[in-house]
Amino acid sequence: MRETDPFERLFEALPAINAPSGFESRLHARLSEELAAAVQKNVFRVSGIVCIASALTMFIVLHSPLTSLIPQALEALKGVLP
């Protein structure tokens, strides 16, 4: 069917189009850049998660009912100790 198709002749008459020289090396450069950016993004993401987790822990510790008992415990200790 392709042999008798006039569009085959129409498109075959066109010159072949080739990728320019150095195409792969430029693609590699972009790929490396992208991978480096992804690694950096992951590092920032992990740092961010650690920061938020630390802040949350501090908040919980400072606002926990047990923490409010510490001054009372210290006072009690003062009374007990000679």
Binding site: A16, I17, N18, A19, P20, F23, E24, L27
Partner: peptide
């Protein structure tokens, strides 16, 4: 890399 080599001309075209 092999895939790029095999398809670069077709994809570029």
């Amino acid at each position: 890399d092999e895939l790029v080599e095999a398809y670069k001309h077709r994809i570029y075209a």
